[in-house]
């Protein structure tokens, strides 16, 4: 199951683990990504907390925790090669994985069709 936030993050839910990254639209808006600051393994966040930072040359953006939970893994490949966020935002450019404290929060997020409609309204 893939969900989206209004801040252009995606969440892929696999069992009780959610993987989080930014969408193609987001990486295009930022431009060439040069740095990603990831959370610490084991850190816990509430929905909406600053969890990570993604930077391009001219822009920087906070990545918010889309749901409550604890960080279970971070994508250390981004440290050496932040361009993965540009080249494969929905795949190898993922940011972190987190536990799902309250599955009900997922219902408040958009599915792919709703997100695509949301993007259309932005123009």
């Amino acid at each position: 199951m893939t969900k989206y936030t209004k801040d252009h993050e995606w969440i892929i839910v696999d069992g009780d683990v959610a993987t989080v990254g930014i969408t193609d639209f987001a990486q295009k808006s930022l431009g060439d990504v040069v740095f990603v600051e990831l959370p610490e393994n084991g850190a816990s966040f509430s929905e909406g907390d600053d969890a990570a930072v993604v930077e391009s040359v001219k822009a920087a953006s906070e990545i918010y925790a889309p749901i409550d939970g604890e960080i279970t893994a971070v994508n250390e490949d981004l440290e050496a090669d932040p361009s993965l966020v540009n080249s494969d935002p929905m795949g190898s450019g993922w940011f972190f994985k987190m536990s799902i404290a309250d599955a009900g929060q997922l219902d408040g997020l958009m599915d792919e069709a709703a997100y695509n409609d949301y993007l259309k309204d932005l123009d």
């Binding site: 040069v34 930077e55 040359v57 822009a59 920087a60």
Partner: peptide, 13 residues
């Protein structure tokens, strides 16, 4: 370089 640390991009952060 690394100007995302600076006020003209990060503003209050």
């Amino acid at each position: 370089t690394l100007s995302t640390r600076e006020q003209h991009i990060r503003r209050e952060k």
